[in-house]
Design a protein around this nucleic acid. Sequence first.
DNA 1: CCTACCGATCGGTAGG
DNA 2: CCTACCGATCGGTAGG
Lengths: 194, 194
Amino acid sequence: MVEVENLSRKEQVIRAAAALFQKNGYSATSMRDLAHALGIEAASLYSHIKSKEEILQSLCFDMAAQFRASLDKVENSDISYSQKLRQGILGHIEVMAQDLTASAVFMNEHRYLSQPYLRDFLLLRINYINRFKKIIEGGIASGEFQNIDTKLAVMTLFSSLNWMPNWFDPTGLTNPKDVGNQLADMLIGGIKTK
Amino acid sequence: MVEVENLSRKEQVIRAAAALFQKNGYSATSMRDLAHALGIEAASLYSHIKSKEEILQSLCFDMAAQFRASLDKVENSDISYSQKLRQGILGHIEVMAQDLTASAVFMNEHRYLSQPYLRDFLLLRINYINRFKKIIEGGIASGEFQNIDTKLAVMTLFSSLNWMPNWFDPTGLTNPKDVGNQLADMLIGGIKTK
DNA sequence: CCTACCGATCGGTAGG
DNA sequence: CCTACCGATCGGTAGG
């Protein structure tokens, strides 16, 4: 019971922190700001978390794990490279849409991780990007895609995906799946052999 | 002479600040860090600049003005919408490539602007984005482009452009113009009527 | 989860 | 461009 309560409160702390990190940035968010948002004193936060950075670590690595898991599913499936790319995009957006705030922190605040966490995070990220790149390279090798610059293509895709938390309106008419399919239409149509 | 020296020194301060803002973030960069990079004491910085934020303002609004000017040239020229979009992309990348550090600050640190500067900056930015959106809408209306979601299209373009300072290697083989043309090929090919 | 508090550091000013 | 310094605030700890 005590454990469950602690975990739950810890998650409240992390979620409140994510909202402040997104709004004001990690460095510009003080532990007193965070405490105030939760209606407690700054010192009380340390009953739930070890440090300010531990919160950032949770947020960044949890999102990274979710992105990774979503790509696992499509990577080894027996579908065309266009379909793999589309499913990869849909998976990424689906994960993002489940927590746009944490996604924005993942994208914009990971840089404030200290070593060795920063290094580990960047390795996870480059690995993720390279898996998308491999899909594009596979599509080129099979003749499905034009012989485009794969680095430019994958960076265009990645930046477009990660910028979404900054403009996507979850209360709007378009749902994550529609946005993902439209993005896939736009990008795949552009790199597909005509 | 005194004026010229002051201006020059001020620009040195701003450039050094841009490098630190890019590397460590605006909030996490102290005036003592900046002073150290220039080999002077923190208090001495205030002979050249009024405040820390004034530096950020210079960087953000200077870049905004350059982006705006580059789009002015292509907007009213008598070319196809594909060509307008391509020239807009090339112009944006050319401006960015001239100062990748300031461009990264423009993209990632503008959020630390205080009011009313933040509001003004965001208005300039949405205006810039809308001008690209108008080009895309014009292309749809003329039948040159498919009937895509213009918001998604312009956000994909804008995020892709602004993410470039984070991965573009100015010492590499591809020059800004090649990258711009490749990005235009990829995006325009994707939205053009087949 | 609180009060009380720590040393460190912040942006900036006074006065030269 | 410097020394000397300001009040405010930082992340975090001790002890309950």
